[in-house]
Design a protein around this nucleic acid. Structure first.
Lengths: 214, 214
DNA sequence: ACCTGTTTCAAACGTTTGTTTGAATTATCT
DNA sequence: AGATAATTCAAACAAACGTTTGAAACAGGT
């Protein structure tokens, strides 16, 4: 059976959704790029929404499992549990995806976008996928940074994920050299990124009256 | 002349574009919310694209001018030129917009979104609006942080804008308490944000062989 | 009151959209 | 080879979209 029509559809959808967004990408653009018939989308996936869902499902589960595995390895004696190593455990799996090829790069771009422009339905799906991961990382970071109040830590984690999403989404800013697509440059960029996030997370708490924690 | 039809259209478009995105918002949804006729959009603006353009034009020019004015005031003796004060000069004007009312909040949300999901045409427009501002702030920060290479500073600035965009866009993350909509909470959040960005920008340079500057 | 220019309105236009259909084609198995 | 299921295909569907039209309603000035 020619089931790689399915893969070609997923690849094309991944690329076009990442580049132009969900609503502005037509099924005809996807099926053309995938060299497939228009009706193939509904045959293999049922609807455009379920196609998007499948694009995420294809990679997200494994990605988050690898994040948790690295964190567990770290905590069960695999190395020092510092803010940097915990951050690396979270980021490295996604960076591996990017290094694995242009499709992985597109997926991370789509993932970054989705944090901001996802519809409510997709947000629910992403929340289910991310919640346990973020929960675990937040707990571990809370032990590494006991001086921070829970609300403080949570917002810093929020900021950190913002940087990551923004960078993966590849938001173009003026004067930004996007020669940083070479892998060598990405390694350098990763260190810059991790340092930026680490010092932000490690900053001393802003002392004043206890804030609402939640 | 009933020219506040124009304003109502801009308000409705601002709100709906910010909440659902450009492509997923129909002119009919906008004109319904604005209690205006469908054709009013083309009468007042010419097209949907030009409506979006007008939504940005209405506030963005003044916003960036205020940013530059605050930076100039700082540099011409208005206070100490530190990373924190420069950051505040950039952020405060947008925060004032948010404090001014729900429409300002919506605009900043739209602005945050646009950094990631803007079409190429809109990106050109935003680039023209942002380029001189970012240029000036980058220069000033370069003088405040002379130990950083230009490429390093630029990327840190990029990360900082990412956090800001992400936060303004109001990306929902699991476990995030969005009771932080009260103004009091926003003030606290602003201090958290500025500290996070400041320590990230001020971090010591990663010393190693000179990287490509560009 | 009349004219003139501006603004609103309901209705329609032609495209494009996601989706469905039913026949044709291809693969799989006995 | 023939029967059965899986997949592809061209064509059409209704709905929604941005846009256009031309007449109605309104405004201000003389």
């Amino acid at each position: 059976m020619e089931d790689d029509t399915r893969q070609r559809l997923l690849d094309a959808a991944e690329a076009l959704f990442a580049e132009h967004g969900f609503a502005e990408t037509s099924l005809r653009a996807i099926t053309t790029q995938a060299r497939a018939n228009l009706a193939a989308v509904h045959y293999h996936f049922g609807s455009k929404d379920e196609l998007l869902h499948a694009v995420f499902a294809r990679r997200l589960k494994m990605l988050n499992e690898e994040r948790l595995a690295r964190l567990t390895a770290l905590e069960t004696g695999g190395g020092p549990v510092t803010v940097e190593t915990v951050l690396t455990a979270f980021i490295e799996p996604s960076l591996r995806l990017r290094r694995a090829g242009v499709q992985g790069e597109r997926f991370t771009r789509l993932l970054g976008r989705a944090q901001i422009d996802a519809s409510e339905a997709l947000r629910d799906f992403l929340r289910d996928q991310y919640a346990p991961v973020l929960e675990r990382f937040q707990q571990t970071l809370g032990r590494t940074l006991p001086q921070l109040q829970p609300g403080e830590l949570r917002w810093r984690l929020y900021f950190a994920l913002g940087v990551l999403s923004f960078t993966y989404a590849g938001a173009r800013l003026p004067q930004m050299p996007f020669a940083a697509r070479l892998v060598g440059d990405e390694e350098w960029l990763l260190r810059q990124l991790i340092q930026f996030l680490a010092v932000g997370l490690c900053a001393p708490p802003l002392e004043e009256g206890a804030e609402k924690t939640a």
